[in-house]
Nucleic acid binder design. Structure first.
Lengths: 182, 182, 182, 182
DNA sequence: AATGAATGAGATTTCATTCAT
DNA sequence: GATGAATGAAATCTCATTCAT
């Protein structure tokens, strides 16, 4: 069994993904993690701090994905690995939304530094995508190509979620994957 | 001066756009509309009912936009009118997010009928886009082309918001607009 | 159509009988009477005043019943007319409770003069019952016999209501009626 | 000092007895129990849940009374113990009403399951009374005799309350007690 | 470190009553 | 007389956070 801190992050991640940050109560998270409510504050000084840890966890998840994609040498193949990873999560994304996009959007409205942390969920992707396009010789257009890819993926998540349509979502991702070769 | 009911919808729309539905309190809305809190309940039986009115308002806004786009006869031009309308709102979208996508996504996690109402914000767009592509002779691919367009716009909104980058947002929309001709 | 004042009393009587006084809202009464809410205050200066009018109405109803019972000359027959009247209302009493006992009990907890008015619902019965027993030569035991009768009727109402059992209720009332002859 | 949960039930019982359920506010109960209002919700998830606990408490009280009555072997004596217990509470019943009948009647108008819970206050009495009459050889008339007894007691409570007349109340109960021997 | 309990600010909602016309 | 609208006090309930042990 994971230690309490990790269990809390894991549970918070699940509950936030399912309900959104504002609708998530610490009581729910504590119960899901089988940790007494009062104890949450031993590990995290506030609800915000717990959310920050969730973001860190997701960023780490993305970095792990990128690392595994780097086993490919061709940047196009690397990007396709990432797109495939989204496709592999189609069911959950279509049911609950994108764990990166959802949270980034919701936290964006705050003036905390949680808002800034939320943006990392996108910037870490944008940066890595940019690096790949640069290796493809895109030069100064690399950043733009990266933004286009991020937009395409996130748009598919949002629309797939609204219509709960995994088939549509996958079709869109395959299309994105195909065009990466152009 | 608008009548109170309209002022409440207008204020709720603003506040929800700025804060999200969950973080919106009726006290805030009432204050923004200069209406005493208790009076809100004379016009709307619940917070949810007010949100439903906001959604209706936004759907009407979209229909108005579509009606004006229909002054063009060429479907491609019509679609470009719509894309341009998003472009024209770049500053606010980049600051607060897309008023349709944001709300649709947040409400999607509920099991109310507010969730269903939220989805209308997308389906009304998808339907109209589909009709245009059909007139272009897209046949059974019309729905898919419509979904692609919706994804592209929404993706741009989400990423534009995260990076508060109106230039990026506009670039993306112009690109979308250009490709509509292909 | 009754005039508004009477319609309000009639509706208030119905709604109070169905929901109890505390759970009755003037909005409900106004709607039931098809009278605009604001207008209620033209006819009654407060919710309490409306309830007082309802009590007056019910007291009048009882007096009418007594008057009709007085067409009989035998006091025992007179009392049996009254008991039969309760029996005739078995269905509604078993569904909603006794319109006299319910209200008397609920209002009893106040320190208004509504409490005193509520008690009239019982005292008017007690007085008339006492008068009949006195004519039967019960002498100073007349008051006690009257109280016993009132207790018996009200007990049957309360228990009939709790178990929603009209048959039980009627059996009890017939038993009471029979014993009146002893 | 009782623990808080018990204090809350005790206070709620008192306040509900004094004011009725609808007119009881949790603020009043909390103050009476010397518990901060917000803390009430740590022990009971809603006002209804607190009322349900009050009912449980009263049902338990009745069962304790029945258990002590069962120290007598003669069913008639047992029933007289119960009637005496009501008589011993004459002052409070005449001031506030019967804690079982009042609540049962008020809750009866709801469509919650609180209504059903309220009915238990009577059914637990009816069942035990029936068992005693059955031991007396009443056969299938046992249930009817039990209902008659319950009606008699409750009628006395209701009328005793309306006239705030403890002497009348006691006279009625003694009469009931005497007739149990017939 | 751990935890059940406590706290209080604030959110939604209700409603008798009053106001303006 | 009539009425739609307004008002504000108060009720129920929620929850992040803190406390006492």
């Amino acid at each position: 069994m994971l230690d309490k801190r990790d269990r809390l992050i894991r549970s918070a991640s699940r509950v936030i993904h399912a309900n959104g940050y504002a609708a998530t109560t610490l009581a729910l998270v504590a119960k899901d993690a089988a940790v007494p409510l009062g104890n949450v504050y031993y590990y995290f000084k506030s609800k915000e701090a717990l959310a920050a840890a969730v973001i860190d966890d997701r960023v780490a998840e993305l970095r792990t994905l990128f690392a595994s994609a780097e086993e490919e040498s061709d940047p196009v193949e690397r990007l396709r690995v990432v797109v495939s990873a989204f496709e592999a999560s189609a069911e959950i994304i279509v049911a609950r939304g994108c764990p990166y996009g959802n949270l980034s959007q919701e936290l964006d409205k705050r003036d905390d530094d949680l808002a800034a942390r939320g943006r990392e969920l996108f910037s870490v992707q944008l940066d890595w995508f940019t690096a790949q396009f640069r290796r493809l010789g895109a030069g100064r257009k690399a950043a733009d190509a990266a933004a286009e890819l991020l937009c395409a993926i996130q748009g598919a998540c949002l629309v797939g979620l609204a219509f709960k349509d995994a088939a549509l979502f996958k079709r869109r991702l395959r299309d994105i994957s195909r065009r990466l070769g152009d």
